[in-house]
């Protein structure tokens, strides 16, 4: 991903660049990508991240990262190798029947999906 930056009109105008914002909704949650803001420097990026992703008390923590500082890896040779990889997947080990049998033996109900 190329570093997105635009030059504003005028010779001494600051360069705006993109900052990616990650947010944590509540303590213990993972940091999730929230979106991005445009800002000329880290201080204003912090302000704008706070306004876009925190002003309604929807976050307890933000990470603000200059987009250009992110190592962007989308190389298919590295991530989507062309040869068969099925032997690296656990598909051959079907656990469902074994689990069901074990639960029956233990007299346990199937646990419900965890709700957040």
């Amino acid at each position: 991903m190329s570093r997105a930056s635009v030059r504003q009109a005028g010779s001494d105008a600051p360069t705006l660049e993109a900052w990616e914002v990650f947010r944590q909704e509540k303590d213990g949650d993972p940091m999730r990508h929230g979106g991005s803001v445009m800002a000329p420097d880290v201080e204003l990026a912090m302000h704008y991240a706070r306004e876009m992703f925190g002003r309604r008390q929807e976050s307890v923590r933000l990470w603000v990262v200059r987009r250009g500082d992110i190592l962007d890896l989308e190389d298919p040779d590295l991530l989507q190798p062309p040869l068969d990889r099925s032997f690296k997947k656990p598909g051959g080990y079907v656990m469902r029947e074994k689990l069901a049998a074990a639960r029956e033996a233990a007299g346990q109900e199937k646990p419900k999906a965890r709700s957040r």
Binding site: L16, M38, A39, H47, Y48, E51, M52, R55
Partner: peptide, 11 residues
């Protein structure tokens, strides 16, 4: 002056 600042100042 810019979208982000617009949101910030409004807030």
């Amino acid at each position: 002056p810019m979208l982000e600042e617009d949101v910030a100042m409004s807030s």
